[in-house]
Computed example of a mutant assay.
Amino acid sequence: MANKRTIDIMMIGLRSVNGAQGGVERHVRSLVEEFDAMGLATCIVERSPYSRGGRAAFGAHGQIMPIWSPRSASYEALAHSVLATLWAGLVRPRVLHVHAIGPSIVAPLARLLGLHVVCTHHGRDYDRQKWGTFAKLVLRLGEWCQAHFAQGRICVAQSLSLQLKAELGVPFTYIPNAVKLPPLSGDPTILDQLQLQPGKYVINLGRLVPEKRQDDLIRAFSRLARKDVKLVLVGSADHPSQYSEDLAKLADAVPGVIMAGFRQGSDLVQLLANAALFALPSSHEGMPIAALEAMSLSRPVLLSDIPANMDLMLPPECYHKTASVEDLAEKLEHRLAAQSDAGVPAVDWTEVLSAYNWRTVARQTLDVYDQASTGFSQAVKARRP
């Protein structure tokens, strides 16, 4: 266990690797699994309202440590990050890795405590529609703290990493997200539960928040000529909001729309693997893990043309105009019509996905740790592959 020896890497800035949805959470879990396989001692600090319980083991060499936070969309990230950083100051990990720009506001505190700090920029969260003026200012401050106080800086999107360097005057190392799903089981029980037929539904995966634009997807779906296809929205709202309430009402008003709630593990894999099409109409993404997951299961995809999605460099037919319900409906109709004749063909994304491997991501991240902490490489050299 990591608490019986020096912690090599402590991860903060997420809700929970087991009890919460989101790209940051999936990113941290997959990255730490790779570090555990390398024999590195890790600690994931979770927010207690989302954690599944007390301190627990994570793999052979790591631990999960829940620390209190208020369950508030406005304050939980900041409050938890401060408490997690103070605790890190007591236990002294070799590297403190802070995820997302909001939690990165603690980077000056961490440096004051003498910690080696690495921050990962998962996306410009101040562009999310849910935040007010003050919250956006705090998020921008967190981004500035990443640039000027972290000893190592990572960005998950290539185009964004270049923008950050130009705007903030410091380099961000581009290290993408990757994809890792449980093996596909032979029991599609979830399809029976939701009354779905393989190849007869469009799927979307993500939190129910305005920037994911599930409302655009429902409106576009309502215009389809085909009535044998359903729309499945997988995800939930971390906090009740006007958007999530309005979305539920809109889904009830359109026949064929299924709100499947938060799903993970084999249920999620089955839902993705049997879909006719994966759709992601977001107006904001850091780096689209959900799209990579669908592609790893050979699913056709239709994504908004925001920079983070365009960074995947997929064929033109895989994109639609962001925030255009008309264009999204047209592209949905075209893609589904083309597939109906071919029996929902699988798409070979092997060449695209070759760049998104968690083992490679882990090794690249360790290189950033080496730069941030001169003693890190020597301390863990015997345990690196």
Rank of each mutant, 00 (worst) to 15 (best):
S72H: 07
R140M: 08
G54N: 09
W68C: 13
Q129C: 12
A84M: 04
V138S: 00
H116T: 11
G54R: 06
V95L: 02
E76R: 09
S72K: 03
R29Y: 13
F58K: 06
L139E: 11
G39F: 06
F35P: 03
S74R: 15
M65L: 13
V98E: 11
L112V: 01
S74H: 09
T120V: 09
R92W: 09
G132C: 15
I105M: 12
M38I: 08
T42D: 03
I64K: 06
S30C: 11
S81P: 11
R140A: 09
K136C: 03
G53Q: 04
A79Q: 09
C119N: 08
L139C: 00
H61A: 13
R124P: 06
H116R: 12
T133A: 14
D36L: 01
H122R: 06
V117S: 03
H61P: 10
R47V: 03
M65P: 04
C119G: 05
G62W: 00
A37H: 13
F134G: 05
L78Q: 13
G59V: 05
A56K: 14
L96M: 10
R111Y: 06
L137R: 11
A110E: 07
S48A: 12
G89E: 08
A79P: 10
H122P: 12
L115I: 08
L96V: 08
A77T: 09
Q63M: 13
L112T: 12
S69I: 04
V106K: 05
P66A: 00
R92Y: 03
D127I: 07
R52K: 15
D36T: 00
T120L: 01
W131T: 02
